[in-house]
Simulated scan of single mutants.
Amino acid sequence: MANGLGRLRTPYQVMMVSPGQHAISCRPGMLLHSTHALERLTGPLDTLIVSGGFGHAEAAANPVIVAHVQRLARISRRVASVCTGAYVLAAAGLLDGKRATTHWSFADTFAARYPGVDVDPGPIFIRDGKISTAAGITSALDLTLAFIEEDHGVELARQVSRMLVTYLQRPGNQAQMSMFTAAPPPGHDAVRRVVDHVNANLAGDVSTVALAAIAGVTPRHLTRLFLTHMGQTPGRFVREVRVAAAAHLIVSTSLPLAEVATRCGLASTETLRVAFTRRYGIPPSQYRARHRGAHSNRG
């Protein structure tokens, strides 16, 4: 799409590469035909992208594949992975000492297997030097649009986004999951009651003591339940839900930031700014401006 819309002097050329140029069997039966053999591919290359999938663990444990990824990375201007393709980059030593992401459901396992990688399961993609890692599936589109913008400017990236009828364009530090896409509340009745109460009463008293009373347990026991069923303390859960709700209001309304903070149970605009910057990497005002700009340029 970029080639056609941009009338590029040096158009992108896409190559599908696999060991031995063998076809790639995907679930539940799709067959991808390769255009080049991994072993015979030479450079220089512009962008090397390693895709994830159900065979990522085997690929990362295959010394031949890993060695060729190391070789090709040295002759590539930039290197990227999609989803669990990050395992292969990590096995090749390309992520050592770098900040990286992968699909949130694999993040814990990924971090345990590669302790030298600074794993952040939050953003949809991360760029650290010449290495980029995307969370998976649709985040690959966001990373690709970022590449097009880097290569040819924001206007071409916007044109491509409009033609693809995709979001224009999510910043890399946007969260993989939000309060609207996260997994449903856990099966434990007390924890579910607390989760429902927090979502409905963000501006109220949602301290651990107050939530424990709603659950009918002690604060200490509620913390244990949340760690077991939610993977975090009640206090951290409340903070994350409040900031996610604030992000939704910032993008979808014109409310002053002070009002957003009040509605979401945050003490002040400064509290909102600190919490928001910690979570999304940019202050609320910049987040609003960026998303407003994206909405105003949609096709």
Rank of each mutant, 00 (worst) to 15 (best):
G4A: 15
L5M: 11
G6P: 01
R7C: 06
L8R: 09
L8K: 06
R9D: 15
T10G: 07
Y12G: 09
V14F: 12
P19G: 10
P19T: 12
C26S: 09
P28C: 07
P28T: 11
G29I: 02
M30R: 10
L31P: 01
T35V: 08
H36L: 01
E39W: 11
E39G: 04
T42I: 09
T42K: 13
G43C: 08
T47A: 14
L48R: 07
I49E: 08
V50H: 01
F54V: 11
G55N: 00
G55P: 05
N62E: 12
N62Q: 09
P63G: 05
I65S: 02
I65D: 02
I65M: 00
Q70W: 02
R78D: 03
V79H: 01
V82T: 06
C83V: 08
G85N: 01
G85P: 06
G93R: 08
L95P: 01
D96F: 07
K98F: 12
K98H: 15
R99P: 00
T101E: 06
W104K: 06
T109C: 01
T109R: 08
F110H: 07
R113C: 04
V119M: 01
D120V: 13
I124T: 11
I126E: 07
I126C: 02
I126P: 06
I126Q: 00
D128N: 11
K130T: 15
T133L: 06
A134H: 04
I137V: 15
A146V: 00
I148Q: 05
E150S: 14
H152C: 03
G153C: 02
A157Q: 13
R158Y: 11
M163G: 02
M163L: 14
M163I: 14
T166N: 08
Q169I: 10
R170Y: 12
N173F: 05
Q174K: 13
A175G: 04
A175R: 12
Q176W: 09
Q176A: 08
T181P: 04
P184L: 04
G187R: 08
A190G: 01
R193M: 10
V195H: 04
V195A: 15
H197S: 07
N199T: 09
L202D: 05
V206Q: 03
T208G: 05
L211M: 10
G216I: 05
V217F: 03
V217T: 14
V217D: 02
L222Y: 01
L225R: 13
L225Y: 11
L225W: 04
L227A: 10
L227S: 10
G231I: 15
T233P: 01
P234K: 05
V238W: 01
R239S: 15
V243D: 07
V243C: 09
A246C: 02
H248T: 14
I250H: 05
S252R: 15
T253V: 10
S254R: 13
L255T: 08
P256Y: 09
C264E: 00
C264S: 07
A267G: 05
E270I: 12
A275G: 03
F276S: 04
Y280S: 10
G281S: 10
I282Y: 07
P284M: 13
R288N: 10
H291I: 08
A294Q: 12
S296R: 14
S296F: 07
N297D: 12
N297H: 13
